[in-house]
Amino acid sequence: MIILQLDHVTKQFGGLVAVSSVDLEVPQGSIFSIIGPNGAGKTTLFNCITGFYRPEAGRIIFDGVSLVGLRPDQIAALGIARTYQNIRLFGRMTAIENILVGQHSRLKSGLAGALFRLPRTRREEQEALDKAHQLLDFVGLSGYGDMFAHNLPYGQQRRLELARALASEPRLLLLDEPAAGMNPKETEELMAFIRRIRDELGLTILLIEHDMRVVMGISDIVAVLDFGEKICEGTPQEVRCNPRVIEAYLGKGAA
């Protein structure tokens, strides 16, 4: 079953075509990687999916719902969560609070609930806090929960960002270069972790990554973007041998 489908998605900035008529079909439960040189339009594609950019043309269908024209918060509520290339946490909030914000679209209480401390709100808050603790354990941040996010070491920030994304109980998780700045051992752990969340939580993962070991190691399908166009798609093996891919990465003549 296809959970996310992109159909001829095109995004331009002024005269520059950042994403040009890209088709993607992401099967449910897969780990789907998008690779490509810098400026190939990968992050732009993420921004189109999450509603920060409105594509000029094309359709984006998530589990039968068209995403084009929806606000980012509506898309998040549908079950799409993301992390960022350069970590973007809520710096002056604690780790637990960051995770609680991640649960925002799964919680309901509003102004009245908070002002009058309605029983329903208190129960909800209690459950949210329990869940935050679980997630903290899950990503291995127990004991760091009450620290301001910007005081956490780099590696912990990455994990916290993942926990925050998982807090919204997404069905599709977009990871933007999660292995950036990690050493080989940490990368290894990250790959195991990504597999684990796919298997245990049953979600679909769309991944942008530069580290080829990660891409080749865990992806079910890899799509290659170059100058905004998809130049090839297939299993890691197929992509690795594709002459166009080698050309895009290494330049003409290398193939």
Binding site: G51, F52, D73, A76, V101, H104
Partner: peptide, 8 residues
């Protein structure tokens, strides 16, 4: 922007 992506 991030808060929007978190569903706010």
């Amino acid at each position: 922007k991030v808060s929007q992506a978190m569903g706010i």
